[in-house]
C-alpha cells in the first residue's frame, strides 16, 4: 500500500509541476492545451475564482483512504459508463454487423429517443431528384351547388421561392413539406397503405401541411376534399458528363382526402364557419366508401386519428 501511495504522490506532484510530455499532444488536444495553459498561468484562469486553485496542489496520495476509494469508484463508474455510451453510439451509427445484429434490442432501447442520430449526410449518394408536392381541392361554394375541382397547385414551388436568395431560410419552408412527404412515404407501404400509427399520423400531417399552404389561395371553409400528388423529376446529369438520364417528371397521385375540422389550420378552425364540418365530414366518409381504395383508406385514417387520441392517456 505504502508503495503505491508514494508513487501516486510523487507522480501527481510531477504532473502539477508540469512535464506534459510535449510530443504527446493531440489526441486529447483541448485537454492538453488547457492543461498547459493552465500551468503557464499558475492555475489561475481555469479556476476563474477562488476554490479551484487548491486542487492543483492536492496530492491524491495524501488523501485519506475513504476519500481515495470514493475517487477511485467514481473514476471506475464513469469510465464504464462513458465506454458504454460510446459503444452504443458506435453500434447505433455503424452498418449492420455481427455485434449490432445480436444486441440491436439493447442499442435501440438505449439510443431512442434522445440519443437518436443519423449522420449519413448526402450519403451514400446524394439525392438526385427533385420532389414536388402538388395539391388540388374539391370546393363546394354553397349548400345546393355541385362541387368543382381546382387546378393542381405546386406547393413545393412556393417553399422554394421562400428559400431562394434568403440568407436565413426558415425551417418551415425547408423542412416542413419536404420532411412531411418523406415521413409519409416511409410510413406507407408500396400499395400506398399506411403502416401502423406512423402511417396514420403521417397522412394527417401531410394533408394538414397542404391545407395550411392552400389557405393563402383558397377559402378553406369551402374545401371539402383535397388530393395530393407527388412529382419526381430527376436532376439532369452535368453537361460535362456523358451520362444521360430520363428527366421526364413522374407523378403519383394519392387518394382524395376528406377534410375534417382537425385538419384545418387553427385560425380557420376557430372562425366559426367550419364549426359544422366535423359531423358533416364524417357523414360523407361513409358515403364515400365506394370510392377508390386509397380514398377509403385515407378516410379511415381521419377517423382513427381522432379515436386514437381519445383512447390514449
Amino acid at each position: 500500500m505504502g508503495e503505491r501511495t508514494e508513487m501516486m504522490s510523487s507522480d501527481s506532484a510531477a504532473g502539477a509541476r508540469g512535464e506534459p510530455g510535449e510530443e504527446r499532444a493531440s489526441t486529447v488536444t483541448p485537454s492538453d492545451d488547457g492543461a498547459r495553459d493552465d500551468r503557464a498561468r499558475g492555475g489561475g484562469p481555469l479556476a476563474g475564482g477562488v476554490d479551484d486553485d487548491s486542487l492543483e496542489s492536492v496530492r491524491l496520495g495524501a488523501l485519506s483512504l475513504p476519500a481515495r476509494a470514493v475517487v477511485a469508484v467514481a473514476i471506475g463508474a464513469l469510465a464504464v459508463y462513458a465506454c458504454w455510451h460510446l459503444a452504443m453510439i458506435f453500434l447505433f451509427v455503424a452498418p449492420s454487423n455481427t455485434v449490432r445484429e445480436e444486441h440491436w434490442g439493447t442499442v435501440r432501447a438505449y439510443m431512442y429517443p434522445e440519443f437518436e442520430q443519423n449522420w449519413k449526410l448526402f450519403a451514400p449518394n446524394p439525392l438526385q431528384r427533385n420532389t414536388a408536392v402538388h395539391a388540388r381541392a374539391e370546393i363546394r361554394e354553397g349548400a345546393g351547388q355541385s362541387p368543382s375541382t381546382t387546378e393542381w397547385i405546386d406547393l413545393t414551388a412556393w417553399e422554394i421561392d421562400q428559400i431562394r436568395h434568403n440568407p436565413l431560410p426558415s425551417h418551415s419552408n425547408q423542412n416542413m413539406l419536404r420532411r412531411g412527404w418523406d415521413f409519409y412515404e416511409k410510413s406507407h407501404n408500396d400499395d400506398g397503405e399506411p403502416v401502423g400509427m406512423r402511417g396514420e399520423v403521417s397522412a394527417s400531417y401531410l394533408h394538414r401541411i397542404a391545407l395550411e399552404r392552400l389557405g393563402d389561395r383558397l377559402d378553406l371553409t369551402t374545401v371539402e376534399r383535397i388530393q395530393l400528388r407527388v412529382v419526381n423529376t430527376r436532376v439532369p446529369a452535368p453537361n460535362w458528363r456523358s451520362e444521360d438520364f430520363d428527366t421526364e417528371p413522374t407523378a403519383e397521385e394519392l387518394g382524395w382526402w376528406t377534410v375534417t375540422t382537425e385538419d384545418l389550420p387553427a385560425d380557420v378552425r376557430t372562425s366559426g364557419d367550419a364549426a359544422g364540418r366535423g359531423a358533416e365530414a364524417e357523414g360523407e366518409t361513409e358515403d364515400a366508401d365506394g370510392g377508390t381504395e386509397a380514398d377509403g383508406d385515407t378516410a379511415a385514417d381521419a377517423n382513427d386519428d381522432t379515436d386514437g387520441n381519445e383512447a390514449r392517456p
Binding site: 508513487m7 501516486m8 507522480d11 501527481s12 510531477a14 504532473g15 502539477a16 510530455g21 486529447v28 483541448p30 485537454s31 492545451d33 488547457g34 492543461a35 495553459d37 493552465d38 484562469p45 481555469l46 476563474g48 479551484d52 486542487l55 492543483e56 492536492v58 491524491l60 475517487v71 473514476i75
Partner: peptide, 22 residues
C-alpha cells in the same frame, strides 16, 4: 505506464479540462 496513468488520473481529477474549448 504507471507514470502516465498517474499523470492522467491527476489531470482528470484536479482539473476540468479544456476550459476555453468547452
Amino acid at each position: 505506464f504507471d507514470g502516465a496513468l498517474l499523470r492522467g488520473i491527476g489531470n482528470i481529477t484536479r482539473r476540468a479540462l479544456g476550459p476555453y474549448q468547452t
